[in-house]
Every structure is written in C-alpha cells, then in structure tokens.
Write a protein that binds this DNA or RNA. Structure first.
Length: 502
RNA sequence: GACUCCGUAGCUCAGCUGGUAGAGCAAAAGACUCUUAAUCUUUGGGUCGUGAGUUCGAUCCUCACCGGGGUCACCA
C-alpha cells in the first residue's frame, strides 16, 4: 500500500522522536487523576483544587503562537484545552521538548499525558496549565478534523456512512454524540438487568451453536463442526433452551442473546442482532403485558427521567398502561375486512385485493401476518399490544383460553415496528408435537423458514413444564427507539458490511 | 434480488454542454508567550472507485464491475 505524504511525515516524526531518546509507544502506565468533563463541571477558581492533576487524551487541535501554545485534548469524557508554555515545560536551557517534540513532531491524533494545574484563561476558558508533557502514542494516520465555530456550528463533519461504520473508531473519535448513543444502549441493558435481578430472575447462557435451529421462523447460518463432523446452525433464537431450563426447575430465566438470521439487511435488520428473552413460570401473557409495561416505563425513566421519549417526528410515551387490540380487530379496523372465520383461499383473495404479494407456500397464519404487516403495523406509533394471533402462525404458543382458533400471544408495536413478541407458552407435549408436524408440512410446501421438529425439546415437555410466559425483546430496536436513531447501524458498533479490499 | 442516487487531495466539498482539476481544513517551511473555526507568509499533495467502449481527446457520455446510501422485495 502506497503511503500518503502525511503518513510518511508521521512515520518520519516517529523516527525523529526515537532519535531524541523518546519512545513513541512507551510501555509504562501513565497515572491519571482527572478527566475533562469533571474539570469543566467542577472547577472553581476560589476553591484552589485541581492544582496537581494528571490527565491523558488525544490531541484534537493545536494553536501554536511561538513560545506558548494552546491545544485541545479529548479523553473519554470530553475535550479540554491545554495551555503549554515553553519555559514551563522546559525550565532549563534545553527547549527540545517544546521546540522539537511538541511543535514539530506531535500531530493531531497523537495521545499524550500532561501534568499541571487547572486555571481560567483571560478569555474565560477553563484550561490545564501544563507543566510536563509525555507522549503516550504517536498516531501515523491523519485524523479528520471537525471544527466547531463560535456559534457552535460544526464544520467538515464526518458523515459518510461507509467511513463511519467501517472505521467506527474514527467515528467515535470525531463524532462525540456517537459515543453517547452507545452509553445509552449500555444503560438500557443495565436497566433491564437490574429490573430482572431485583426480582430474583436468573441470568443464564445457552448454546449459540445448535444442531436444530429452533424457537423462531427464520433462515439460519450453517456451519460445520470438524471434530464431530456434523453441521451446526447459529441460533435464530434461544427460546427452546430457556424453556428446557424452566422444565429443569428454574422459575425465571433470562438471557441477552446474540441471534443470527441469514436474511436480508436493511435499516432495521442486521444479520446478527441481540434479543433479550425471558421466561417466567406460573405466569401467562396477561401478566407478561404488565411486566413489559413496567419494564419499558422504567427504561425510559432511567434514561430520560420521564416516560416520554423523542422519536423522529413523534413523541413516544411509555407510560403504563399501553393500548391493546386483537390482531383480527386491527385488520378489520384498517382494511374493513373481517378475516376472523376465513379459510386460506378467502384470505388469499383478501390479500390480493389489497395488492399484497402472496405465494403458494403461504399458509393461513402467514397470510394474516402479511395482511397485518402491510396494512396495520405502521399505524401503531405509541406502544400498543397486538394480541391473540391465529394458531397457524404461532407454533409454540398455548391456545387461547376462550377464543377458538387463536393463541395467547402478543406483539408490542412501537413506532410502527415490532419491538417484542410474547406468549403463554405451550406446555402440552402432545399438542406441541402436532404443531411441529404442521410446520413440517409447511416446509414440505416450500416454506424454508418453517420450524423443524425438536425431539429433545418435546421430551423435555413430556417431563412437564409449568405453565409459563415468555417474551423476546429486540434490543437493537429498543436502542433505536430510545436513542432516536432510524437505522440499526447507528446502534451497533460494527454493523455488517461487505468485506473491504485493501 | 430490483430500482435509484452517490464515489474527485488525509477530511468536507466545488468543478467541466467532453480539452486530464480547484477551495477550506489537515500537512510541510517560516513568524508569533492568552488562543479558541487562532492569525499571517510560502509550499507540497490527485492514474477524479476499477475496467472497457464512443471520441482527435473522457473526471464528465455509454456499458460492465466494485463499494456505499435510499426505496421496494425478502425478513418478525
């Protein structure tokens, strides 16, 4: 790879630094006792504190005025200005550290540590008056420089999505608000974990490599285990394993699970994504709706201090309780068609009437799902539970206690997108076997996402699983909602991309 | 997968009804001991995504390919 002019200059500078007897990549730890955000928030001139600080960060800008300079360094918490005076960092006759190292050989992007004291400049900027400077890492690539003018307007913002996603490290350095999105994501997960742990639920880990990919209807990634010489699948869900644990006697288990689905990618789908699934014994989907309301309200309040969350052109309110509507009622409301008692042929006609693409392999459940996705989904902006799905599209769900042909299932729709999926779990092993067999028939018709029968799971159910309710919540989509990002790529550090050629 | 838009210096972008390119920042050299988009002087840096075609001549027109965005399809 040909080096650019600036890369050559920086490599040469690293050599020059070595010639001065300074290691551009020193091994020793650098003790830090302060950070930018804390200093900017808490420094008061009168208090006389922050007078012996040590801080480290990346050089983000320099303004050299002969024998005194200002620079800005950025640490994990933010940026702070440094004031560097030649005769203070070089008190003796040897001015090399200032004249040669700082002025000539350091660049924007280098990581340095400084010691000194905090003061306020004549123009009122809280700054660190540097008394000693240590190079901690020489940067060999020029960093994009984003400047903020006096009106707070950013110039030359790095916005090219390809650069931002492929080189997330650069994005994080130059776009400080990006870091905040990921802090919020971590906070959301932490809120959920606290919520569950306070209730005594057990966090567990279950297999990612599975010989039968179950628990969802989706196309899996296939891999191969050499020693066993068998195909293995990357999990599409962990549902069947968590239910095995309920059989085993845990009353509530949850997992933040990376799932993998070999399907199309767009702004709401990444091939690998995170889903939180939880199963609680002796509960039903009514209970689960209440728990979900409590959980989401808490997440919003932990994050924003209120249940109200900005989201694109809307404002979402996660205040309990959420709206509830049956899926067939939703379809009736938005299409005018009452599909409750229709057979497959009639349903297909209704779909065609609404210009919905149908295929021969689609069964009744799938057709209803299509109808809902195309005509209803987008209308549910505020958190809404869509309830009581047809049995055909829910092979793991218990039949509705009072509504024939339906199951006790809900999906939570927010901002026109599915955020969660939950049900009263089917625990009748004979019924479950029949449902799997129905799925096998769909597979025979050409549905390459239909479930395959999992005999070990059925064996577990035969030992007896207490009635329970489970839910899966899409963590990436939740993060999108809660951080007001329209693209999944903005809430994943490293969204999937075609491999780069170097 | 289909359609569509985009790809020019390290970064952000201009440009040309077709005559092989400009700016700001960044960089290099110099000046400057309170700057803050620091300023001032000087300078370097590009096979205009890749390949082919049309043309006397292509960064610009055509086609293919590569990469990305958007819409749709697929997909909980």
């Amino acid at each position: 790879m040909e080096l650019t002019e600036q890369e050559i200059f920086r490599r040469n500078a690293a050599e020059e630094i070595r010639k001065l007897g300074i290691d551009p990549y020193p091994a020793a730890q650098y003790e830090v006792n302060a950070n930018a955000a804390d200093i900017l928030a808490n420094f008061e001139r009168e208090k006389g504190d922050y007078q012996d600080i040590s801080i480290a960060g990346r050089i983000m800008g320099r303004r050299i005025m002969g024998n005194a300079s200002f620079a800005e360094i950025q640490d994990q918490t933010g940026r702070i200005q440094l004031y560097i005076k030649r005769d203070e960092i070089c008190p003796g006759d040897d001015k090399t550290i200032y004249n040669t190292l700082f002025k000539k050989l350091l660049d924007i992007g280098d990581i340095i540590g400084v010691k000194g004291y905090v003061f306020i400049t004549n123009t009122g900027t809280i700054s660190v008056h540097v008394t000693s400077l240590t190079l901690l890492c020489k940067s060999l690539r020029p960093l994009p420089v984003v400047k903020i003018d006096s009106e707070g307007k950013a110039h030359d913002v790095v916005s090219d999505p390809e650069l931002r996603y492929r080189q997330r490290y650069v994005d994080l350095i130059v776009n400080p608000q990006v870091k905040n999105v990921f802090k919020q994501r971590a906070q959301i997960i932490s809120s959920m974990r606290n919520f569950f742990n306070e209730r005594g639920y057990l966090e567990v880990e279950t297999p990612i490599l599975q010989s039968i990919p179950g628990g969802a209807t989706a196309k899996p990634f296939i891999t191969h285990h050499n020693a066993l010489d068998i195909p293995l699948y990357m999990r599409i869900a962990n549902e069947l394993y968590l239910k095995r644990l309920i059989v085993g006697g845990f009353d509530a288990v949850y997992e933040f699970a990376k799932d993998f689905r070999n399907e199309g990618m767009d702004r709401t789908h990444n091939p690998e994504f995170t889903q939180m699934e939880i199963y609680v014994a002796y509960k039903d989907y009514e209970w689960m709706m209440q728990m979900t309301e409590e959980l989401l309200e808490k997440i919003a309040i932990d994050l924003y201090g209120t249940s109200i969350v900005p989201c694109g052109d809307h404002t979402l309110d996660f205040k309990r309780p959420f709206q509830r509507i049956g899926i067939l009622d939703a379809i009736k409301e938005h299409t005018g068609d009452d599909v409750a008692n229709m057979d497959e042929d009639e349903l297909r006609k209704v779909c065609q009437k609404h210009n919905i693409h149908v295929e021969a392999s689609m069964g009744k459940g799938k057709l209803i799902d299509e109808l809902f996705s195309a005509k209803c989904e987008k209308h549910y902006v505020q958190p809404t539970f869509i309830m009581d799905y047809p049995v055909e599209m829910s092979p793991l769900t218990k039949k509705h206690r009072s509504k024939p042909g339906l199951v006790e299932r809900f999906e939570l729709m927010v901002n026109g997108k599915e955020l969660a999926n939950a049900y009263s779990e089917l625990n009748d092993p004979v019924e479950q076997r029949l449902r799997f067999e129905e799925q096998m028939k769909l597979a025979a018709r050409g549905d390459d996402e239909a479930m395959t029968i999992d005999n070990d799971f059925l064996r577990a159910l035969e030992y007896g699983m207490p009635p329970c309710s489970g839910i899966g919540i899409g963590i990436d989509r939740l993060a999108m909602l809660m951080t007001n990002n329209a693209s999944i790529q903005d809430v994943l550090f490293f969204p999937q991309m075609r491999p780069e050629t170097f």
